[in-house]
């Protein structure tokens, strides 16, 4: 494999996609950092702050995995990817996992040879328009100019939606969210369409968010989740169960504040998660306290949500579909046993 890496660099870039070593866990441990693909900047999900520290909901997942595997939530190398570069980055082994509001679709899972390990945000595609346009429904958008991020599922949903409703539109393809924001605010497009969560995050960053409305129509299902390469199931398991641990922690009331008491006194399931009972960690090839560290890194799913994108943040997303199954949502972690 060493040879192929060297010669792969000699051949045209991309020709040797998908040759990274099989044991991602060993690579990560040897390297000492986790390479995690995130967006180029979407406030609330993944964006660097004033000090250059990455933060956000997707970043929280990366940090939890780093904490579980390496014991250090800061041992993450964040690799900003665009809608176009993300899959190549993952397939080529440049990143170990991708946590970038990526929609789980059949062809990505099967044809592109990726492994979606779960869903961390149930989303749907929406439209945002300036209030001044006086539009109250997406069905009134005939003839509009629409900004879309190219290389995303939204591009295809948009084409389908307008075709189904016999409407015309002019697409303005755009590479990153920041560019889209600039074009939309300059009035180069009437409508900006992306996942509803992304719209909320983008709108929160506007100077006067009140001048823009998100239309009520949600035109697609967008289950967003982290993904890894096909073919390394052990690594896929680690990322999957780290995400599940975050979700289960919320269900059982394990928070970053009470995690030590819970590991001593919680019910058997909680003890198994936190490693004070059983040897689930060893089955993953990790130590017993992997999940405890993952939850301690940024809190459980609910804490991550509230801190980054919840109702008390400028983004102000309600839990909606992303509530626990016990509270009418879709989040449901399989049992830890």
């Amino acid at each position: 494999m060493k040879n192929s890496v060297f010669l792969g660099a000699l051949t045209a870039a991309g020709l040797t996609a998908g040759v990274a070593g099989a044991a991602t866990l060993d690579d990560v441990k040897e390297r000492g950092t986790l390479n995690c693909g995130v967006t180029t900047g979407l406030v609330g999900f993944a964006a660097p702050d004033a000090n250059g520290e990455w933060g956000g909901f997707d970043v929280g997942v990366c940090r939890a995995v780093a904490a579980a595997v390496l014991g250090d939530p800061t041992a993450v190398e964040f690799v900003p990817t665009t809608g176009k570069t993300r899959f190549t980055a993952l397939a080529s082994g440049e990143i170990d996992m991708l946590a970038r509001n990526t929609t789980w679709t059949f062809s990505r899972d099967v044809d592109l040879k990726f492994e979606f390990v779960g869903v961390n945000y149930y989303d749907g595609q929406g439209f945002m328009v300036p209030k001044a346009l006086g539009v109250s429904s997406a069905t009134e958008l005939d003839g509009a100019t629409v900004c879309i991020q190219t290389g995303t599922t939204t591009e295809l949903n948009l084409a389908d939606y307008f075709r189904n409703n016999n409407m015309e539109y002019t697409p303005v393809p755009i590479e990153t969210n920041a560019e889209a924001q600039q074009q939309y605010l300059a009035g180069a497009c009437d409508v900006y369409t992306t996942d509803a969560s992304g719209l909320a995050a983008t709108r929160a960053a506007f100077e006067s968010p009140g001048d823009h409305v998100v239309l009520p129509e949600i035109i697609s299902k967008e289950p967003l989740g982290p993904l890894v390469r096909h073919g390394d199931n052990d690594w896929g398991d680690i990322v999957r169960w780290t995400l599940n641990a975050l979700i289960a922690a919320e269900e059982y009331g394990i928070t970053s504040a009470n995690i030590d008491e819970m590991s001593a006194s919680g019910n058997p399931e909680v003890k198994r998660i936190l490693g004070s009972e059983g040897d689930l960690g060893a089955m993953l090839g990790l130590d017993a306290e992997w999940a405890k560290r993952a939850i301690g890194a940024g809190g459980n799913y609910g804490e991550l949500f509230a801190k980054n994108i919840g109702e008390s943040t400028p983004i102000g997303l309600s839990r909606g579909l992303n509530a626990q199954w016990t509270e009418g949502g879709l989040l449901y972690a399989p049992p830890f046993r």
Binding site: K84, F87, S107, T150, G151, P173
Partner: peptide, 9 residues
């Protein structure tokens, strides 16, 4: 090289 590549992989 952009959308087709991306959508079909």
């Amino acid at each position: 090289g952009g959308i087709t590549l991306n959508q079909t992989g």
